[in-house]
């Protein structure tokens, strides 16, 4: 509709009408979006505000008011001095535990998922369909159901309450989703690429590492975000399988917040919670652009 005066389109809107309509729906859209943004940011705002206040200030009950002075002591205490039971080392212990669990778990689960997906999508081996179906089932079984047998198995293998144990758990539970993600991505890649590489003499792993993996940047970043968020935010598995010495940050946060003795230090609790939530947030902000691109590229083309 480039020519608005054209009589060829008698039932078309005039330009002014169209602009008014577009403008109206725009306003509604922005109203809704900003409403939603406010709704979601209020709890975050209260948390951050409270964490900067001193305890006497908090007891006044003015939760929406700005802190009188920027008091960082609650953050310091949350990081290095808050007590969980008898130990008073703060969240930093849990933070480093979480990092020790996260890095190998993310790397191994993505690698295993990518390799699985590549094998399932591009090497039509006998029983590939059955393997895929089994993995799909795995993705839908709530893991609470199999916790007890898993504990028995892990204690039999002497992996229970160890760092390798919790890493294995995360890799195994991450496998269905990672495999599916990479399988769908690799399924869109022309099979002739693998054929060409085979004629050139490359084997299964060489094709994977030299041809497929370099093509997978976008989907790797999607997997990285999904796994980092999932593993960092995990509470149940860490509580059960990590053991006392490897408790992740989330478990420690719970212990700090629900510490029964003494007064409830809201500012410390808030600071501790924000600290625990920061790493996944950072991952989102640093790679959000790739995340969208990766999801789109996986859905539309190879």
């Amino acid at each position: 509709m480039t020519d608005n005066n054209s009589p060829a389109f008698p039932f078309a809107f005039s330009a002014a009408q169209a602009r008014r309509r577009r403008c109206g729906s725009r306003i509604a859209l922005y109203l809704f979006l900003s409403g939603a943004a406010v709704l979601f940011s209020i709890p975050l705002l209260i948390m951050v505000l409270t964490s900067f206040k001193s305890m006497p200030e908090i007891r006044q009950g003015t939760i929406f008011s700005l802190p009188a002075a920027l008091d960082l002591s609650a953050w310091v205490k949350a990081w290095s001095g808050a007590c969980t039971g008898l130990a008073c080392g703060g969240l930093s212990v849990g933070f480093w535990n979480s990092v020790r669990i996260l890095v190998p778990s993310v790397v191994l689960s993505i690698l295993a998922g990518a390799l699985n997906g590549y094998a399932l999508a591009l090497w039509r081996f006998r029983g590939a369909h059955a393997v895929l179906t089994a993995l799909m089932l795995g993705a839908f079984i709530p893991y609470q159901v199999i916790l007890y047998p898993l504990v028995k198995i892990f204690s039999f293998l002497h992996l229970y309450s160890t760092l390798p144990g919790i890493i294995v758990i995360h890799v195994v539970f991450g496998l269905p989703l990672m495999t599916m993600l990479f399988r769908n991505f690799y399924a869109a890649i022309p099979a002739e690429l693998v054929k060409a590489a085979r004629v050139d003499g490359a084997g299964f792993f060489r094709i994977f590492f030299e041809i497929m993996l370099p093509m997978s940047t976008n989907i790797l970043i999607v997997a990285l975000i999904l796994q980092t968020t999932g593993i960092w935010n995990d509470y149940l598995l860490g509580l059960i399988f990590a053991g006392h010495d490897n408790q992740p940050m989330t478990v420690q946060l719970n212990n700090i917040v629900t510490n029964g003795t003494g007064i409830v230090e809201y500012n410390v609790n808030m600071a501790a919670t924000v600290l625990t939530a920061l790493p996944p947030l950072a991952v989102y902000f640093l790679s959000g652009r790739y995340f969208v691109r990766g999801i789109a590229s996986g859905a539309v083309k190879g």
Partner: peptide
Amino acid sequence: LAMVFQSYALYPT
């Protein structure tokens, strides 16, 4: 032997 494919199948990276 060596082979040439319909979709070229060049390694994109």
